[in-house]
Amino acid sequence: MVSTRNLRRRRILDFSPLILLVALTAIFAVVDPRVVSGPSLINIVAQATPIAVLALGALIVLLTGGIDLAAGVGVAFCAVLIASLVDGGAGLPLAMLAGATAMLAVGLANGILISVFHIPPFVTTLAAMVILQGATLAVASKGVLMLSDPTLRLIGIERTFGIPNIIFLTAAIVTGAAILMRFTRFGLRTYALGSDPAAAGLAGVPILRHTVLVYVASGFFVFLAAVVMIARVPVVTPNIGGTSLLLDAIAATVLGGTSVFGGRGTVWGTVVGALIVSLLTTALRVFGTDPSSIELYKGAIIIAALLADTGMTYAKARLMEASR
């Protein structure tokens, strides 16, 4: 009987991100129905798309106990690089290829420095963030670029059955990420590496190589997030993405149940976390919150999520001990 009760409690903890999303939606529906009206809900989901895509990359890194502080600025650099190439006469496919190659190279460099040279992820990615900030300003010589490519407009602005196409694109990316993390060797090794690196090494996981692959994967999701950003907002500036998007992505992963200590987290939870962040941002704007204060609230949300993560980890450990 005790074990059944503990199992139910563990399931409740596992579904806590979804419970929180439903509770917030119900609360906002009572406080101010404008927040969760039909058009607003669609906008909330569309607004969550770049957050969710970047958060998927953050999920992969956090599962190993690492962090990628360069991801947000990487989105800005990649977006500006793609926009500059298109503006200069290069076709969109070539610009996309250049953007993907650049972010994969950044991820590869980060992975090598962390795994081979044993430089802490925080220091490595912080240095990468500073370098990318300078590179973004160097590439963005014109300051503001307007993209009018019909393909980007099709996937980012136009709608199908009243739903923005960017939501369908993000759903495809999320599905691919779910398959990657659940049914492939890469996903299994990532969870193993974050849960117990020593045991993973004894089980045959190539620690150095897989760590490099994790940061390369993060770089690829940075590229995908940049594509989603420029598709939704064709006005590209050096300020696109950046630290604000990184904060949203980290908040989404932690709110979605990902442990900052590694080994625990899901794709679906990360997506739910992105929806929570988007919902809270929309609610703050509807309530007339000063735009300069929104980041303050986001920081508070991240701290609260970290405290909740610590509490959930402790509660699950106690439940597992009680069920033995």
Rank of each mutant, 00 (worst) to 15 (best):
T175V: 15
I167V: 11
G162Q: 04
S84W: 05
P39M: 07
S37W: 02
L41V: 12
V139F: 02
V80M: 10
V130H: 14
A171T: 02
A172V: 14
L180I: 02
R159E: 12
N43W: 00
G99P: 10
A172L: 15
V45G: 03
P120A: 10
I60M: 13
P150Q: 04
L169M: 12
L137T: 12
F122I: 15
G134C: 14
I44M: 03
I67E: 02
P150L: 09
L126E: 01
I51T: 08
A109L: 15
G57S: 07
A128C: 14
S84T: 12
A70I: 13
M103G: 07
R153D: 10
L147Q: 07
V73R: 13
A90S: 09
G89Q: 07
L81W: 01
N43T: 05
M181C: 04
S141K: 15
G72I: 03
I155E: 06
L41R: 08
L81F: 00
E158W: 12
A98F: 08
F161N: 03
G162D: 01
I131T: 13
G107S: 10
N43D: 06
M146G: 03
I167Q: 01
S148L: 12
A52I: 07
L113C: 13
C78M: 02
A109Q: 08
I157M: 13
T160Y: 05
L145D: 00
P121R: 11
I179A: 11
T49Q: 12
I155L: 14
G89E: 07
F161E: 00
A98I: 05
V116I: 15
I167L: 05
A58D: 10
L85D: 00
G111D: 04
L92C: 06
